[in-house]
Amino acid sequence: MNIFRLVGDMSHLLAIIILLMKMWKSRSVAGISGKSQILFAIVFTTRYLDLFTSFVSIYNTSMKVFFIGTSYVTVYFIYQHFKPTYDSNHDTFRVEFLIVPVGGLAFLVNHEFSLLEILWTFSIYLESVAILPQLFMVSKTGEAESITSHYLFALGSYRALYLLNWIYRYYFEGFFDLIAVVAGCVQTILYCDFFYLYITKVLKGKKISLPA
C-alpha cells in the first residue's frame, strides 16, 4: 500500500459518501444518472466475487463490502426511495452500447480464460466507461449542482491516483497489469473535460453550466 493507492481509495470512498449524503440530505436524486449507478453496482458485484475465494486483508474486505453495499443502496434510492425526484427524461444514455462491447472485449482480451477472471476483466473495462451516462446527463441538461461536481471530481481523481500507484508499483515492486492500466487511462481521460470545468468553474464558486 503506497500513498497514491491509499489517497485514491479514500477519494473513492469520499465520492460515494458525498453522493449518499447529497441524496439523503436533499431528499432528492436530481441530476444523478441511475444508469451510471446501476453500472457501478454491476462493476462492484462482478469484481468482488473473489470475496468468496480469497482473503487479502480486513481493509480489503471491508472496502469491498462497503462498495458493493453502498452501490445497491444508491440504486435503491434512485429507483425506489427518491424515485419521484429522479430525472429519467435526461438519463437516456443507451447502456447496452457499453455493456455489450465491454462484455465481448472481456471475453476476448483477458489474463486467463476462467469465469472469475473474465468477470473481473469485464468489471475493469465496464468501470472505465460507467460514468458516461452521468457525463452525458450533465451535458444534456447543461448543468451540474456543485455537490454533484464534487462527487464527480472525487470519483475521477480516484482512478487518476491509481495510475500514479501503478507507476510507483512498476518501479518499486515490478508490478504491471496491462488491462488495469489501459482501462485506468481510458477512465481518467474521460474525466479530463470535466476536470477542466471543475478547476475553472466550481473551485471559483460557480456551478457548472454549459452553453446550450
Partner: peptide, 10 residues
C-alpha cells in the same frame, strides 16, 4: 505469481 496480480487492489 499471477494470482496475486491486482486482487489486492480495489
Amino acid at each position: 505469481k499471477k494470482d496475486a496480480r491486482v486482487k489486492d487492489e480495489l
